[in-house]
């Protein structure tokens, strides 16, 4: 065998697992739910192809309201996460001393790894009627009786920001960490105010990190299931919950698949728009922040 042959053979042996994975576990399954979403039941075990499931979605206000609600809350959560996360990331990367920096990184890291479920459970213990916050409020005399702080939209938003904020801070802090301090100094030396330096120097430099963080945060929020349900209650009107309801409770797979495709379309569109507006690509943002 010549070297050329060996290289060929290696390439095929490396391509095989990749193609098996991408085709069997990603591409085909998604084509499958797309096909299922176009299937109409005309009689028991008799099906035709058509857009009925999508029309049903449009005809039923509760469905598209849930999607709109999920979309708007996800965008709100992404914006809030940036507002909360940027100052913290900047502090870790540029203001804290070397020792403090390491400690703060670790302090971010550990909760990041703890399951969503445990974090949502922690909030339930803090916020429910018999919870810690309610007791403290009664003890200090601010309220007379127990207060239920769960099962409202504000709590869901606070909980979602909590669940995803570290996914914004970590890529942002890494990006800012790589920024040369003299760029900021030069900005000040040339007479820029703190605000101008932020807007003209720091933010443009951090753009890949900001976009990476925002995409991850947005995807995690729009696709989240536990936090909205545990903190918002069974009627929290979250789109992933609708998908679960159609698939598992009602066993209406056609309509569940339709909702899945709609969620995928909506999130992909938003991510694509975000990448276009910021002039980034998936490879420069998400891929880099993962590795």
């Amino acid at each position: 065998m010549t070297r050329q042959h060996v290289r060929r053979l290696t390439l095929f042996m490396l391509l095989a697992p990749f193609l098996l994975w991408i085709l069997l576990m990603i591409v085909l399954p998604h084509l499958g739910i797309f096909a299922l979403s176009l299937r109409e039941k005309v009689a028991p075990l008799v099906y035709t192809i058509g857009p009925k499931n999508y029309l049903d979605f449009l005809r039923e206000p509760i469905y598209w309201n849930t999607l709109l609600r999920t979309a708007s809350i996800s965008i709100l959560v992404t914006a809030l996460t940036f507002l909360v996360g940027f100052p913290i990331a900047y502090y870790i990367a540029k203001i804290a001393g070397r020792r403090v920096k390491g400690a703060l990184f670790l302090a971010c890291l550990i909760p990041l790894w703890v399951s969503d479920l445990v974090r949502a459970y922690g909030w339930m213990i803090l916020l429910r009627e018999t919870g810690v916050v309610s007791s403290v409020l009664q003890w200090t005399g601010i309220v007379d009786g127990p207060v239920e702080l769960l099962y409202n939209d504000a709590t869901v938003v606070v909980g979602l920001v909590y669940t995803v904020v570290l996914f914004m801070i970590v890529p942002l802090a890494s990006t800012l960490e790589g920024m040369d301090d003299s760029l900021i100094e030069a900005g000040y030396n040339l007479g820029g105010s703190g605000f101008t330096v932020m807007r003209r120097i720091v933010i443009p430099y951090a753009m890949p990190g900001i976009v990476a963080g925002s995409i991850i945060v947005f995807m995690l929020t729009a696709g989240s299931y536990l936090t909205p349900i545990l903190l918002g209650g069974k009627n929290s009107m979250w789109f992933t919950e609708q998908i679960y309801e159609q698939f598992i409770t009602r066993f209406n797979w056609e309509s569940g698949a339709t909702f899945g495709i709609l969620l995928l379309l909506f999130t992909s569109l938003t991510v694509w728009l975000g990448l276009r507006l910021s002039g980034q690509s998936l490879a420069t943002t998400v891929a880099r922040s993962e590795a």
């Binding site: 990603i26 085909l28 499958g32 739910i33 992933t240 698949a257 969620l263 995928l264 998400v286």
Partner: peptide, 23 residues
């Protein structure tokens, strides 16, 4: 192919679940 390799990160987990279930 490189794009396809990254894409699973931006697919909601629920979708991965239902699509594999259906197939």
């Amino acid at each position: 192919c490189y794009m396809l390799m990254i894409v699973p990160l931006v697919i909601p987990g629920v979708l991965l679940g239902i699509s594999i279930l259906v197939l």
